[in-house]
Simulated scan of single mutants.
Amino acid sequence: MEKLESNETLTSDLQTLTILDPLSTKFTTLNDLCFEISSLQDLAHRGSWRSIIDKIIRARKQSLLHKPHEHLIYLCYNVLALTKLRRFGDASDELDSLDDFDSHRYRYESYPEDYPNHEKGSMVPFALRWLHAEIPIRLGKRQETLDRLYLLLEFVRVKVVKSLNLSMEQWRRREVFLINTISSHHLNNKEFSVCLKLFKELLSRDSEDPVLLSKLGYIQMQLGDIEGSKGSFNGVENLIKKRNLEGIEFKNLINRNKAMVYLVGKDYVSAVREYEECMERDPTDVVAINNKSLCLMYLRDLSDSIKVLESALERVPTYALNETLVVNLCSMYELAYVNHSDIKKTLSNWIARVSPDDFDSSSTRS
């Protein structure tokens, strides 16, 4: 059974199904400042990765890019699109065309004629640095990815110290993003103690971030420290009340944390209740949708568990169409129907019409 890379899974009676991690992170934005950058951003949001590659090929052939930073931004989008399409070798080759990121070639002050307003510093997008770190693991080089991610984390932490005001906040967000990324790799290898250390270090500097504290709770759960995770989740609820955080995302965070505790205790009825509260507030909460469905299945209500996922795909396909949810739905089809191959084929045909370019069609197993 395939799972999302940044997912954390819980041991359950049915090992073939994957519980979505409500704190999984995906990198979704790139730096701006480029010729027609808005069109690339729009294509990326729509998952039109093949169109991005075609657009970049045309821009390069027609010499539409004039300033050095434009080439870097377009290269970054190209590497991202190749990665999304699982063309990891091509993405690696594109990255190999670059010099060291600290080279003078990639600094604004090296091109005073192009940047007369005295821009200074590196023009290398943070996204490109991150992709450079992530690509090796897709080629079977896990340690190289970890080494590069830790080096990038050091780079970001230096920036945090040297930056001021809004810039500092941006680098702090990147630090948290990197620690989530590194933690995901360690979680996939069941190196829970490393993850625990990473998040405790973050929380020692920012003890009032409810999302970070929730992440700590999930790691404690993976380590079997149920009481510790309950303490962290209670701390999340107290923080949200203390800071008067009224947003739906914070209310749903509390419910999902409670649901996870119920899940571990196999109190699936109570977990369903928590997930339903999330879905009432936010019908696009795919974590609640997926996990409610699994809880119903654990309660031997396979028919309703299938209906939950099918309804989500019909109502909010943009949010519900991910590989984990589809894998789980197909597994349920196999359990429920003799003619599951025909049903999965119908699902696969529908997905082919509506899915983004990077959707893994093998998740339907049809």
Rank of each mutant, 00 (worst) to 15 (best):
E144T: 11
T11Y: 13
E36N: 11
L72K: 02
D32C: 05
F35I: 06
N7P: 04
T324Y: 05
S293D: 07
L151M: 14
N180V: 00
N78M: 05
V194A: 04
G47D: 05
F35P: 02
I343T: 04
R174L: 07
G265V: 13
I351D: 05
W350M: 10
P136V: 04
W350D: 08
T324M: 09
D96T: 08
E5W: 11
S229A: 15
L302N: 08
S355G: 06
L329C: 07
E70M: 01
H69A: 04
Y262W: 12
S92C: 09
H69F: 10
K200L: 13
V211T: 12
F233V: 04
S92W: 11
E36Q: 11
D21G: 01
A91W: 01
G121T: 09
D360A: 09
L20I: 13
I135S: 00
L325S: 06
D357Q: 07
S38M: 10
I135K: 02
S92R: 13
Q170E: 12
D13R: 14
M1V: 08
K345C: 07
T324K: 06
E2Q: 14
R281M: 15
G89C: 05
L302W: 07
F101R: 04
M297I: 00
L313D: 14
C330L: 08
L4W: 04
S38C: 01
I306V: 15
R50Y: 03
K241I: 09
R87G: 02
E246Q: 12
F199K: 02
L151A: 14
E109Y: 10
K120M: 12
N31C: 13
S270C: 11
R353P: 03
C34H: 01
L95P: 03
E334L: 08
S229C: 13
L321S: 02
S12I: 14
Q143F: 07
D147N: 15
L128P: 01
R273F: 15
M221S: 10
H185N: 14
S303G: 13
D102I: 07
S184E: 01
Y262M: 12
N252C: 15
E154D: 12
M123T: 03
I135H: 03
H69S: 08
I37T: 06
N322Y: 12
H104R: 09
D90T: 07
Y150Q: 14
A59L: 10
F27I: 11
F233A: 01
K190G: 00
I56D: 03
D342T: 14
E280V: 15
I219C: 03
L75T: 00
S184R: 01
D102Y: 05
T25I: 12
Y74S: 06
L216I: 08
L23S: 08
L151S: 14
I52R: 00
S207I: 11
L95M: 06
L347M: 11
D93V: 10
E5Q: 13
L43N: 02
A352D: 13
K215H: 08
Q143P: 05
I289E: 01
E314Q: 15
K61C: 02
L20R: 01
I37V: 13
R365S: 00
S38F: 10
L166M: 08
S63F: 00
I135D: 02
A91Q: 02
